[in-house]
Simulated assay, not measured.
Amino acid sequence: MIEFIINILIGGLLGVFGGLLGIGGGLFAIPTLSILYGMDQQLAQGTALAMVVPNIVLGIYKYNQRNKIEWKTAAILGLCAFALSWFGALIAIDLDHRAMREIFISFLIFIAIWNLLQMLGKRATTGLRDLAWPYFAGLGAVSGFLGGLFGVGSAVVATPVLTMFFGATQVVAQGLSLAIAVPTTAATLVTYSMHGQVNWATGIAMAIGGVLTVSYGVRAAHSLPQHILKVIFSVFVLISAALLYGQL
C-alpha cells in the first residue's frame, strides 16, 4: 500500500511536468523508473506509457480549453504518426537493452541541443503556417516512428519542429504535439504490453497521480513566457540524459 501511494506521488510530480511541457510526463518517467526501480530500458518505456496515455488525453482537453487546437491539422499529424508508431515499437522491443538506452540518451541530448539552438535563433512565431498537408504528414510519420521507438519521442520531436519551421507558438505546438502523441502512445503501449514490457501496477498508480496534477502544469504553461518553457524543457531533458548515462 505504501509503495502504491509513493507511485501516485511520483506520478503526480511527473504529471505537472508533462502538462507544463506538453509531453505527458513520460520523458522524465523513463529515467525515474530506470533509476528508482532498476527497470531495463524497454520495461521502463512500456511502464511509462501506461502512465502517459491518460495524462495526454487530459492534457489535450486542457490545452484545447485554453487555446483551441486545429483539429484538421491534428488529425493529419495523428493518423500518420499512428501508421509509423507500430514499426518503431517493434524495433525497440528487439533491441539490446544497453544499446536501446544508449540510443535513447543520444536522442535526449540531440533534442535538448536542438531546442536551445532554436531559442538562440529567435525565429518569429507569428502563427501556424498554412502549409500543404504533406508537410504535416511527414512530420507526423517521423514523430510517430520515434514515438514508437522511444515511447515519448512523438511529442518531443514535433514540438520544436512546429515552432522552428511551422511558425507555431510554443503553447500551440505543445497542444498539437499531444494530439500526435495519443495514437502513437496507445499503439506503442499495446505493442509493449503484448511483449510483456509493462509493469501495470506501477504504471497505473503513476497514471492516477498524473491525472490529478497534469492540469496544473497546463495552467502554468499558459502563464510562463515561451523562452522560459524552452529553458525548462532543455534543462530537464539534459538532466534525464545524465541520470540515464550514469546507469550504463
Rank of each mutant, 00 (worst) to 15 (best):
A74R: 13
A74F: 09
A74M: 03
A74T: 05
A74P: 02
A75E: 01
A75R: 08
A75K: 06
I76M: 11
I76T: 07
L77S: 03
L77I: 14
L77Q: 04
G78Y: 13
G78R: 09
G78Q: 06
G78D: 07
L79E: 01
C80M: 11
C80F: 12
A81V: 07
F82E: 00
F82I: 03
A83K: 10
A83T: 06
A83L: 15
A83G: 02
A83Q: 04
L84C: 02
S85T: 05
S85K: 15
S85C: 06
S85P: 04
F87Y: 11
F87H: 07
G88A: 05
G88T: 08
A89N: 06
A89L: 04
A89F: 00
L90V: 06
L90R: 15
I91A: 10
I91S: 04
I91Y: 09
I91H: 03
A92M: 08
I93F: 03
I93W: 02
D94S: 15
D94V: 07
L95Q: 13
L95E: 05
D96E: 11
D96T: 10
D96Y: 12
D96A: 12
H97R: 14
H97P: 11
H97G: 08
H97F: 07
H97A: 11
R98F: 11
R98N: 03
A99Y: 14
A99R: 14
R101L: 13
R101K: 15
R101I: 05
R101G: 08
E102C: 09
E102S: 10
E102N: 13
E102P: 00
I103A: 10
I103S: 05
I103W: 10
I103C: 08
I103F: 14
I103T: 04
F104Y: 11
I105H: 03
S106C: 12
S106Y: 08
S106I: 12
S106F: 10
S106A: 09
F107K: 09
F107P: 05
F107W: 02
L108S: 05
L108G: 05
I109T: 03
I109F: 04
F110C: 07
F110P: 00
